[in-house]
Design a protein around this nucleic acid. Structure first.
Lengths: 254, 254
DNA sequence: CGCTACGTTGAGAACAATCAACCCCGGTGG
DNA sequence: CCACCGGGGTTGATTGTTCTCAACGTAGCG
């Protein structure tokens, strides 16, 4: 037996970057949106735990696909740990990433019983899977949950429209600056220092999110480094050195 | 008295194209989404008509603004007649139109009590205005209405993601072709011939919708005419001569 | 220790933007 | 009635930003 492979890894798909695995753990998830929604809707504890007990855990390696656009939608997901991306593709393979999702985020927009986009893990991730039928049942019983879900969808729609402005009308510098600031805001929301951002995605993914090529993203970030706006820390960590100025760049004022 | 001004026009703002006015008429609106939502939610007739009686009618000239992004949101609207556009702007005046809305469409996405976008009439239009408080009250009483509203929002989100793919990853030809086909689908939905489309918006508006300049939109449509894909009829009417091929152009297959 | 995916940088090409001229049409006023 | 005016649309010439193609550097992982 090979002493160097201490972890028994099941189902090894074309995954590249791997970290500590510990797949299958079902730790409590207080940041999780569905619980959040439920809590804010005064759902009796017994019903809540019934829903949560209907949930199963899904573990994904980085690069693994959770579902593909057009698949019949049987489940709703929330991210317990890790980062995911959702995207649409043209027939000839061009990709538009419509969102990066993190701890606690919802996943699984459906229309006509089918997923509206594809979802793929960009780090090792673990998710809660809720059977759609169970969610619908809970929603019927507690309309306030639906109100909360509706609000989340509205929030996503507002963000999508913001992104349309970026994609349709902003320059490369403005796009990349906006992207970095969005990460900074998320970092802040998680209680981390606003200026230090974790960037788990590749340049190609960033490009497919803001409508640029890998090379242009790379060049633009090099520019920001030269301008003293950005510095790269270890690995996927970066630091925003002048958020004020970067904000101006993002808005086209500089 | 000037015999040529037979219509007493009130409140004449910087409006350009004017048609027959007949402002203030409160004709029944069976295509109207809120009624549609209500009907599908089995709302008792008395409640429905109570809501509808809370509604007032708003008349707009072409070019008039209904509300501006960031305004405190007091009302929800549906379009009874005419065409509207919703848009966001950068600080330096670049505009991204996020949607064109027609008969029966909803209007008034809010987040945190404020409108998420600006709305402007692109033809003479008349709208139903529903006080948000009344809508909330009705929704509380009939959760099925909320379900329907939620579904509409989901639909809009899916369309927004489709548009992100267009803005981020499609060429000028693909964008304009996709736009024309979208109008064709809407035309079909209204029971009109699919190939004959009504294009009430200017080239500048189309450009601000698909992320191009006026000139590029104009050139691209000229190309389509040369290629036998499109022909201009009277005024704002056009005809798609080869939808099959246009569909291929839109998908990048041709 | 070498592979492979990712990232960076450079040179040139391409597509759409910009700048500019002109046309067309409807509305207005002389 | 006609000339003028202005918004919208079209087309041409030129510019410029971003893409493409290519080479090379780097870091993590087996």
């Amino acid at each position: 037996m090979d002493v160097f492979s201490t972890n028994t890894v099941r189902q090894l798909p074309p995954a590249s970057a791997r970290r500590t695995a510990d797949i299958g753990s079902t730790e409590p998830c207080s940041a999780c949106s569905i619980r959040h929604a439920a809590v804010h809707s005064r759902v009796p504890d017994e019903d809540l735990s019934k829903l949560l007990s209907d949930a199963t855990t899904v573990a994904l390696q980085s690069g693994q696909t959770l579902f593909t656009e057009g698949d019949p939608a049987k489940s709703l997901f929330t991210i317990a740990r890790g980062a995911m991306m959702i995207y649409k593709m043209t027939l000839d393979g061009r990709r538009q990433i419509t969102g990066f999702l993190f701890n606690g985020d919802f996943l699984g927009l459906t229309l006509g019983g089918r997923y509206a986009y594809s979802a793929e893990a960009i780090t090792v991730a673990s998710l809660h899977r809720y059977p759609i039928l169970k969610v619908q049942e809970l929603v019927r019983r507690y309309p306030l949950i639906e109100q909360r879900l509706c609000q989340i969808t509205r929030q996503e729609l507002v963000e999508a429209q913001e992104q349309m402005l970026l994609l349709g009308r902003k320059s490369a510098r403005e796009r990349v600056a906006s992207f970095l600031l969005k990460l900074a805001r998320q970092s802040e929301d998680r209680g981390l220092p606003r200026a230090e951002i974790f960037v788990p995605m590749t340049r190609a993914m960033i490009g497919d999110y803001v409508g640029l090529t890998t090379e242009t993203v790379s060049r633009t970030m090099a520019e920001f480094r030269r301008d003293g706006l950005l510095s790269s820390l270890s690995g996927h960590n970066m630091q925003l050195l002048d958020s004020i100025h970067l904000e101006e760049v993002a808005e086209g004022l500089a």
